[in-house]
Nucleic acid binder design. Structure first.
Length: 448
DNA sequence: GCGAACTTTCCTGATT
DNA sequence: TAATCAGGAAAGTTCG
């Protein structure tokens, strides 16, 4: 019996049929996913049909074969309006996740979301009873009840086996394993990813984590550091006890705090330079610290090249600092930007200090922000989408030391790139942009 | 000091 | 109704 598996990509839940040529994707908001769980069943093998409990109008549904496949909900046919021709060619979800026609592999899961995939799938399981879906393919393909595939063997644990950090001891984790684990932790604990200071972990490897004390975790994330520390100790003890023979004895949170390094940078452990940067008013990626030793001599797992790729990415936690919003003038009659009272309060703008499109590009290349903040729609074509547009705007504003930055303003700047063909518009798609011929550095590097 | 380039801010109107 | 998009207008900032 073929299996129907899902892959979550940011806000998108990707559903594959039993044929690699067929795929169907729908996107919806996290809120809707959580509060109004879409109900999904598969009917038939090739093609297939997806059945939703909610109105189809609520979803942005794309099919690769709209002309050949007729999809029906239990109430109404799929509106042609909802078929987006631009999304018909999506190699992104093809062979890598489809080993053969019968069994479909589950791709990497974005664990950065609040909602739990297993909750969603369990809800889907319960929906099938009492529902008589209609299905029509080419007007002559009968509905085949016996081909209905339930999702009973999809559990979160299976999904987790896809994550690389699980296959190695903590002290061998690289920076990406650390990031992945923190994402996994956030999903496990139902903690919003954006509330966790994940950027503070991006320069750490597993070896650093195993040597860090509770207080160190608090310095990385004042809100969740304690819980992350405890979870890590639990993880090491109960999941990787066979690996961690070189790891220091573990203490419960609250102990050993007298042993922690000082924040003033006098310690000698390799992660301390990172902690020293993560103090209020200082971004760990700002690169403005005047002490060259603190950034170059530490034995962080990051190479210089890797470090440079994230050096200007600001702390997410700091985004949550109080923002003084500019109130909109109503009917002032005066157009244009008003004179700035505090002209020196802003970071340098204009040329030479990182352009907006480069900032966006680097977010896309950073697993900390892709896909939770921004994600590729079709990477090979340079098409991307803002997942949390307001958060990206805050990041951009933080970079420019402009706390009043909004997505509206950011998007205006994005649209100015149309003229120079750094970006190209993607008509009909909200929050979607495309890199133009004058944008560089976004294409995946081919390894020879 | 000037102008170009880039960005920000505000706005109107349209669309989703 | 709110969010987003499109684009005009003008001002702020930096740099050559």
């Amino acid at each position: 019996m073929p299996k129907l598996l899902f892959r979550r990509l940011g806000d998108a839940l990707v559903c594959h049929s039993g044929n690699a040529k067929e795929s169907c994707r729908f996107t919806t908001s996290p809120t809707r996913l959580k509060s109004e769980t879409p109900v999904i069943q598969m009917k038939g093998e090739d093609p297939f049909v997806l059945l939703f409990s909610q109105k189809l109008e609520d979803f942005d549904l794309h099919s690769p074969t709209p002309s050949e496949t007729t999809m029906y909900s239990n109430e109404r046919p799929l509106s042609p309006k909802m078929i987006n021709q631009q999304d018909m060619e999506i190699p992104l979800y093809s062979s890598q996740y489809l080993p053969n026609d019968q069994y479909i592999a589950l791709g990497d899961i974005d664990m950065g979301r609040q909602y739990a995939l297993d909750d969603m799938l369990h809800s889907a399981l319960g929906f099938g009873e009492g529902i008589t879906p209609s299905f029509n393919h080419n007007a002559n393909t009968p509905s085949t009840e016996n081909q209905l595939t339930l999702l009973d063997d999809l559990v979160l644990e299976d999904i987790m086996t896809e994550m690389s950090f699980k296959n190695k001891p903590v002290h061998e984790w690289n920076q990406y394993d650390v990031i992945e684990w923190v994402h996994w932790w956030a999903a496990e604990k139902k903690v919003e990813t954006i509330a966790v200071n994940i950027p503070a972990f991006t320069t750490l490897c597993g070896k650093d984590l195993t040597k860090m004390r509770p207080y160190d975790f608090l310095q990385l994330d004042s809100q969740y550091g304690e819980r992350i520390y405890e979870s890590l100790q639990f993880y090491i003890h109960y999941h990787h006890v066979e690996w961690h023979d070189n790891i220091m004895p573990l203490g419960s949170f609250g102990q050993n705090q007298h042993q922690v390094p000082s924040l003033t940078g006098q310690g000698s452990e390799p992660w301390q330079h990172i902690l020293n940067h993560d103090v209020p008013g200082k971004s760990p990626y700002s690169g403005t610290d005047s002490d060259p030793e603190s950034t170059s001599s530490a034995t962080s797992c990051l190479s210089e090249k890797q470090a440079s790729s994230v050096q200007f990415i600001p702390s997410i936690n700091s985004v949550h600092k109080p923002v003084s919003l500019v109130t909109k003038k109503i009917g002032s009659g005066k157009r244009g930007r008003p004179p700035k009272k505090d002209a020196k309060s802003r970071n340098r703008q204009g040329k030479g200090h990182g352009k907006l499109w480069e900032f966006i590009r680097d977010l896309l290349l950073n697993p900390v922000y892709n896909p939770s903040y921004i994600r590729w729609e079709r990477r090979e074509e340079g098409i991307f989408k803002f997942v949390q547009s307001d958060k990206v705007a805050k990041l951009w504003g933080e970079r420019k030391q402009n706390t009043s930055m909004t997505y509206e303003k950011l998007s205006r700047a994005m649209r100015y790139y149309y003229k120079s063909q750094v970006l190209l518009p993607v008509f009909g798609r909200r929050l979607v942009y495309k890199f133009g011929p004058n944008a560089t550095g976004w294409r995946p590097q081919i390894q020879y």
